[in-house]
Amino acid sequence: MSRAIIVHRASPGVSVQDMGRPGNLTFGLSRGGAADRIALREGAALLGQDAGLAAIEMPAAGGIFEFTAQTRIALTGARMRASLEGTRLAWGASHLVPMGAALTIGPAETGFYGYLSVGGGVDTPEVLGARGTHFAAGLGGALMAGDRLPLGEDPGTRTNMCLAPEQRFGGGTLRFVASAQTALFGAEELARFEATVFHRDIRANRMGSRFVPDGDGFGAASGLSIVSEVIVPGDIQVTGDGTPFVLLAECGTTGGYPRIGSVLPCDLATVAQAPAGATLRFKFVTLDEAMEIETRHARTLDARLAAPVPLVRDPRSMRDLLGYEFISGVTDGRTFPDGG
């Protein structure tokens, strides 16, 4: 029988996510997929598998999960309090979970979206070419207690690996380029925007995050009378009350509020992961600078993902120590398994 995850409890908004559905903008369907794509890639790197495989995204808190067979998992993204049958598990690492054990993932300690990746990936049926839940489009839905998610074949065996952590969970500076309506705001308003400190509002979801300025809101010359236009993840949309929203994976495909700029793709995980109250600022960069920043980011990320290192564990704290196979095979010294 194929392996599965049994969901015993799921926090609100926990869902299956992957890299989304590019290519459907013309039907009004945004790409969607994981809010923090870097975390999905980290999970895949830890398990040595394709980053396109689906995982479980957990906003603010996780849940209780059980596996119907021994399963490799990786925990990435926002650090959450995770334990296996009462033993704390390292975050940003891969682990082997025995059949029937209770994996408990509690609230986020830093950041917002945690990810549970599994060896072989979550193998729910594809809809429009992907498995990721798109809440706004009604594709899939939040996971509920009692759900049973099939898992794909897992040819991998490596566990207890970890990756060097990255700082993207506590706000920071978001680099942005000009977008279609930046000029409508004028140089003075743009300078004030860059000089302003923002706090991530409690209003944030997979469509976008609201950022409350310390001080006055922002406005474009033509205010609320611009024609609806294409919007893309990263766009900084300024609503009528002058507060910016940064659009994320599940944003709409067109919108009518003016946009002061567009956050670089490499900083979108920082937007998604900023917890409520986190301090953020915006920094304007030219397209050439953006190209350099994106190139450097891609290179650094590739290098980091290529080099998972063994997780150092203290044998005294390993309750599952005797579950390990210390001898992987026996021969009589004359014959070998390959017949040589």
Binding site: N24, L25, T26, F27, G28, L29, A136, A137, G138, L224, S225, S228, V230, T239, G240, D241, G252, T253, T254, G255, G256, Y257
Partner: peptide
């Protein structure tokens, strides 16, 4: 065009009187 939400058509044009401001929220 189709946009904003999946499958949602934008239809046009209406008579000029309907050129009204967007909601603030």
């Amino acid at each position: 065009t189709i946009g904003f939400a999946p499958g949602m058509p934008y239809l046009g044009e209406l008579p000029e009187a309907w050129d009204i401001p967007r909601l603030k929220q």
